[in-house]
């Protein structure tokens, strides 16, 4: 009898552990097109935005950084940019910082693009394209996720609809 009870307790414990493990497993399931990186330290990123303000990625320690490379001539960038604008209010005053990096275009091009496609967003400017080349994104657009310790944790392949369910949930999941 006592042996039967022990087996029952053991089975109950296994079932409980199984249930507990479900959320952890779900949280590691990445949305389509997002891949885990190896956690190597992010490279330097020191650029000015379109208002002339300096940005240094090192100053973002303690926050997740959504680091997005784009260009106005890139079709998927044009489709993706409004979805980034759509999520900015969700992450205002949170520990997720959205940072855009334009690749190798002049101010006039960037201004006219942003005014038309995403008027609420600012962007860093990489006027010679050299910082982008140092980062070697897998084409444009590309989005890196830099963790609060300055390490590269995820990469979004190509353009993603950031304002849609699984992607928004992924972003919010970073803050838990």
């Amino acid at each position: 009898m006592q042996k039967t009870m022990t087996v029952q307790k053991l089975l109950a414990l296994i079932a409980l552990l199984g249930m507990l493990s479900l959320p952890a497993q779900a949280s590691t399931t990445l949305p389509k097109g997002i891949i885990a990186m190896d956690g190597r330290p992010a490279g330097p990123m020191v650029l000015n935005d379109i208002d002339g303000n300096a940005f240094d990625l090192n100053d973002s320690r303690g926050k997740w950084v959504f680091l997005h490379f784009w260009a106005s001539w890139c079709g998927p960038c044009i489709r993706e940019m409004p979805t980034i604008q759509a999520i900015t209010s969700d992450f205002e005053n949170t520990d997720l910082q959205i940072v855009l990096v334009n690749t190798a275009e002049d101010e006039d091009t960037i201004f006219s693009f942003m005014a038309t496609v995403a008027p609420d967003l600012n962007t860093l400017m990489d006027p010679q394209g050299l910082t982008t080349e140092d980062w070697q994104p897998r084409g444009l657009p590309s989005t890196y996720f830099v963790d609060p310790e300055g390490k590269l944790q995820y990469l979004a392949l190509g353009g993603r609809p950031w304002n849609e369910g699984e992607y928004l949930a992924f972003l919010k999941g970073l803050l838990r």
Partner: peptide, 25 residues
């Protein structure tokens, strides 16, 4: 240099390991 960089991004990469569903153009 900036135009060279733009040109580079319009070319196919020399090497790319494509993940499932990833595309490159």
């Amino acid at each position: 240099q900036a135009k060279q960089s733009t040109f580079g991004w319009t070319q196919l990469p020399e090497v790319r390991d494509l993940h499932r569903h990833e595309h490159v153009g």
